[in-house]
Design a protein around this nucleic acid. Structure first.
Lengths: 189, 189
DNA sequence: GTCTATAAATGGATAGAC
DNA sequence: GTCTATCCATTTATAGAC
């Protein structure tokens, strides 16, 4: 069964986003799939093998998320807002963080191969936001001062931090800081 | 030895900030202190007892950090900058996150008593930043648009997110977004 | 591919002696 | 307060049968 392998990754990604990489076990996976622990080891001999598979899964997850946003929204700010609302939805409704945030929680404890993969995924996410800012400026949809990259950093850092506080202080904290971002990115008064 | 108890908390705070709450053990503490695991249990019967002690320690840590900043800097932006530079120093030079960030990593896994404590600590941190913004505006040191609280949220969210990326992308990512913040908070062009 | 069985290490926790 | 000894559960991982 080739699907079993994907089924394991899919479930693992769920536990990763809920509990973090070091805090889910093969036993958790086996229980929920109704199979033996040893069967998971057959597909992923070491946990770090599964960890790398989760890194690749995260790349796909980002691709899908970004493509969906671009398919459903044309205006640059609508795309950025969809990115924000998506993140907030996951954390508030599903109690899950994005896979990258999950990996960051244990970054120092991960094997170096996984750390490198996370760095590349971070860079990929940043570059996507930067591209949206650049295209938005070219099309006169966004009106910000300075470089697109600097504004992209401000945007994505604020978003990550807002999610951090959304968990403990509720969604108002999130919306409050995002409102500021919109003013800056769109050039509204 | 009453100092032993504090010694344990001090070491535990270090491991908390380096590895996270669920990823350090009584064994780690015992090894580094050169005493038996059971001796740690004498001072903190359950790990969550130690966890609550770490929450109280974190409150003291915040108090000390904020007082030091206010003692050494008068201008509102200098205080905010000292807050940022302090955070960056810890993560880059010492590979440690602030205790609140550490607790956030496992927030969903913590007993509710600890979760409540973290929420209050978050609120305390936010209120400190807000006060600095308000005082800065009153003294004409800061020139920002809108409410002090909204600007405080933007500031602290950006700071937390910048630390997130500093870990994986290096300090340039941090400085890049902080430069934007300064422009906004001080009213520079 | 999946199972049972099992290993070896680790984690949190307790009992009771000194 | 600290120790040794011990308990029980969990975690990662392997061996070998079906």
């Amino acid at each position: 069964m080739q699907n079993r392998k994907q089924q394991i990754v899919e479930l693992a990604s769920d536990l990763l986003r809920t509990r973090g990489y070091t805090d889910f076990s093969y036993q958790d996976l086996a229980r929920e799939l109704g199979i033996a622990k040893a069967s998971i080891h057959h597909h992923f001999p070491k946990k770090d093998d599964l960890g790398m598979a989760l890194c690749h899964w995260s790349q796909d997850w980002l691709d899908r998320a970004f493509n969906r946003i671009e398919d459903n929204h044309d205006h640059a700010w609508d795309r950025l807002e969809a990115y924000l609302e998506g993140s907030l939805y996951w954390i508030m409704q599903e109690k899950k963080v994005c896979p990258l945030c999950a990996f960051h929680h244990d970054l120092n404890l991960l094997p170096s191969e996984m750390q490198e993969a996370v760095k590349e995924l971070d860079a990929f996410e940043i570059q996507w936001v930067r591209r949206i800012f650049e295209e938005g400026k070219d099309r006169q949809e966004l009106h910000f001062e300075g470089e697109a990259l600097a504004n992209a950093y401000l945007f994505i850092c604020t978003a990550k931090g807002a999610l951090y506080f959304a968990q403990s202080q509720g969604p108002e904290a999130f919306h409050c800081s995002i409102k500021q971002l919109k003013r800056l990115a769109t050039g509204q008064t």
